[in-house]
């Protein structure tokens, strides 16, 4: 029973609650974090605005469409990092902090990710949400497209989150160190400010299949713009479920060898 999903979800909620308390305990620090997270959501807004002020922008995308896309990406990454911090997990793996935790009778995914999230990202998510609403107000969008967007976003965010967890355990097992994983979220943020099409066919394949960043922002945004057919919608759902399942399977395989003090993983 201890391995049950409900117990694991309960564990996840409790650790998240304590994580929230630990952030809000130091109020000045928390406010500074809120401001810095808010700034992260303004960065793509500034970039897009400057690009469209000096040029006609990216072909096939007007200002509001690109703003919508980059805000979607910012919100999606904000949601993931609010619950799962890959650099924190990497740090804890290296320092052996999961020694005792992994013996607990809960799902390993819940144990590894529980309480690592970066709570102040709430301001990033809210600001990005406002930018999404602002861009939608300037786009001719139907309710059904928005519904498709929400569904695709949910699947895409879940798939990317699982992929990032798998990548973290992979990095721990094969690379060690902090640098790669520490810089990876920043890299995702840079890439996801713009449509995948600007990276060419190779980029589209790379960021859809190998590093599925596009699942969390590009395809959902395409749905809002009416560029996703019913077949594409179904294919996308199957694709994200596949990415999520494979990532979860690999994550379990990689984390299985974690035996103690963060050093004996073979």
């Amino acid at each position: 029973m201890g391995d049950g999903i409900l117990e694991s979800i309960r564990y996840l909620l409790i650790t998240t609650k304590y994580n929230l308390f630990s952030f809000t305990y130091y109020r000045a620090q928390f406010v500074l974090w809120l401001v810095s997270s808010l700034f992260i959501s303004l960065y793509p807004f500034i970039a897009v605005t400057v690009i469209y002020s000096v040029s006609t922008g990216i072909q096939g995308w007007n200002y509001y469409q690109l703003l919508f896309l980059s805000s979607t990406a910012s919100a999606a990454i904000g949601i993931i990092t609010m619950f799962i911090s890959i650099s924190e997990i990497n740090y804890m793996l290296i320092h052996g902090r999961y020694d005792a935790k992994l013996l607990r009778p809960y799902n390993k995914l819940a144990i590894i990710s529980g309480g690592t999230g970066f709570v102040p990202n709430i301001s990033n998510i809210m600001a990005s949400g406002l930018l999404i609403i602002y861009s939608l107000a300037n786009l001719n969008v139907t309710a059904i497209y928005i519904l498709e967007y929400v569904v695709l976003s949910a699947f895409g965010i879940a798939a990317l989150a699982l992929f990032l967890l798998m990548l973290t355990s992979f990095s721990y097992r094969y690379f060690r160190g902090y640098s790669f994983i520490g810089n990876f979220t920043g890299f995702i943020r840079s890439v996801s400010n713009y449509p995948l099409t600007v990276y060419g066919t190779t980029g589209v394949i790379l960021f859809t299949v190998l590093l599925p960043i596009g699942t969390a922002y590009f395809y959902p945004a395409e749905a809002v713009l009416g560029n996703v057919s019913s077949f594409g919608f179904a294919l996308y759902i199957i694709g994200t479920v596949l990415v999520g399942s494979v990532s979860y399977k690999l994550f379990n395989m990689l984390i299985k060898g974690y035996t103690g003090s963060g050093s004996a993983m073979r």
Binding site: F175, G177, F180, F187
Partner: peptide, 12 residues
């Protein structure tokens, strides 16, 4: 110390 991590960081 962690050469592979460093190479990956460089690629990123």
């Amino acid at each position: 110390v962690y050469k592979k991590d460093w190479v990956m960081w460089m690629l990123v």
